[in-house]
């Protein structure tokens, strides 16, 4: 895709127009980045209320009806359910099992197992399982 930059004088005149055949995952991501819509999720940690930037999330897990957000070196609890978070988060966040959402941008590598499921090694060397039924969706999101 060709990328043009045109300098403007006023801040109010700043505008980005993307001419594309379809709104792909990359374009959606670029739009979110340009519009500054990178979301934060309200979380709690040791009784403190905080906001967790979605770009820091590795994966989100639901355990006994409680939802936990895992970052590189921390674990936070959120009141949101997984299905609610799926709506908030960008296309690189996808269900990898019934109880987990993974951030594809934080996966270092994947390895297929015999039953069709995959083991994903995260950038912090943790390993999670991508269930067979979600492997196809992952390929779709990666445009494979």
């Amino acid at each position: 895709m060709q990328v043009h930059f045109k300098k403007v004088v006023n801040k109010e005149d700043e505008c980005a127009v993307i001419n594309a055949v379809e709104k792909t995952a990359q374009i959606q991501s670029a739009m979110e980045l340009l519009s500054g819509e990178k979301a934060s999720i309200p979380v709690s940690h040791n009784g403190q209320s905080l906001f967790c930037n979605t770009v820091k999330i590795f994966y989100i897990e639901s355990v006994d009806k409680r939802t936990f957000i895992y970052t590189k070196d921390g674990c936070y609890e959120t009141k949101h359910r997984l299905y609610e978070l799926e709506k908030i988060l960008d296309v690189y966040f996808m269900r990898c099992s019934k109880s987990m959402i993974v951030n594809l941008k934080k996966i270092k590598s994947v390895k297929s197992e015999l039953g069709g499921r995959m083991n994903a090694t995260m950038l912090n060397d943790e390993t999670i399982v991508i269930s067979r039924s979600y492997v196809k969706e992952m390929k779709r999101r990666l445009e494979l």
Binding site: K105, K106, S109, S112, M118, L142
Partner: peptide, 20 residues
């Protein structure tokens, strides 16, 4: 075949991977 599939996915993942 599984290995070939893994390689394709891993290549695609590398393109979007965050720098940690």
């Amino acid at each position: 075949f599984m290995k070939m599939d893994d390689n394709k996915i891993n290549e695609a993942l590398k393109e979007i991977q965050d720098k940690e």
